[in-house]
């Protein structure tokens, strides 16, 4: 499930922090522009730059059809409620914004992002709010346990089927959450036993 960020375009070499700032600046710019002509120039420039530097992003953007579907639905609705000009503005804004965001995502590896987030979190660490290294550990834990919890969900569903019970959210979620919480202690002990966090262990 981890997207691949291999490739060597000029955009790949830009530091992730700069890309995030550019994305933020672009979003402000797109929402302050109100003329369709200026918006279409800007969108055209973004599409052209994507085609030149990073075609993988365009493919990835087209693959994200649930997001495109909501944008399209909004566009169709706006045509009927406000007329074609307003719809063009909405579609250009949201379309080019999501395309540029996809470019940033595709050209930055997960590792780079985590490094950037850890660096941003360092001031928080000095304030004593969070331990920056814990962020990487927490992300690793989630990625590690999604398949496990999914298997647990399947087990509960299978048990329902075997007993001929109706699938109800409450009867599925309760056993799933309880069994997950029960294994939290074990995982925490395993982490402390390996001294992964590098701190003396504290219990609640």
């Amino acid at each position: 499930m981890i997207p691949d960020a291999k490739g060597d375009s000029p955009i790949h070499r830009v530091p992730p922090g700069a890309k995030l700032l550019a994305l933020f600046a672009l979003s402000v710019l797109l929402f302050t522009l109100t003329s369709p002509v200026a918006l279409s120039w800007l969108s055209g420039a973004i599409v052209a730059a994507t085609l030149l530097c990073c075609r993988a992003a365009l493919v990835q953007w087209l693959k994200a059809w649930p997001l495109l579907l909501t944008i399209a639905a909004l566009g169709i609705w706006t045509v009927f409620a406000r007329g074609p000009e307003a719809a063009t503005i909405v579609l250009l804004r949201l379309g080019s914004l999501s395309l540029f965001a996809t470019v940033v995502t595709v050209t930055t590896s997960v590792g780079q992002f985590i490094d950037t987030i850890t660096r941003i979190a360092h001031p928080l660490e000095r304030l004593g709010i969070a331990n920056a290294r814990d962020i990487g550990l927490a992300i690793g834990l989630v990625i590690r346990f999604v398949p496990e919890i999914r298997a647990r969900y399947r087990n509960v569903v299978d048990a329902h089927r075997a007993r001929g019970l109706k699938l109800r959210p409450s009867t599925i979620i309760v056993p799933m959450v309880i069994s997950t919480i029960l294994c939290a202690d074990e995982i925490a002990n395993a982490i402390d036993a390996r001294n992964i966090r590098g701190t003396p262990s504290k219990r609640n």
Partner: peptide, 28 residues
């Protein structure tokens, strides 16, 4: 923050992710 709290937070995030993977459940 204790390791146990960190693990609980990560596990709950994983539960949220799994709840997004499963097909929507019909109710009512």
């Amino acid at each position: 923050m204790s390791t146990r709290s960190l693990v609980l937070i990560a596990l709950f995030t994983a539960i949220i992710v799994v709840l997004g993977l499963v097909p929507p459940i019909m109710v009512g």
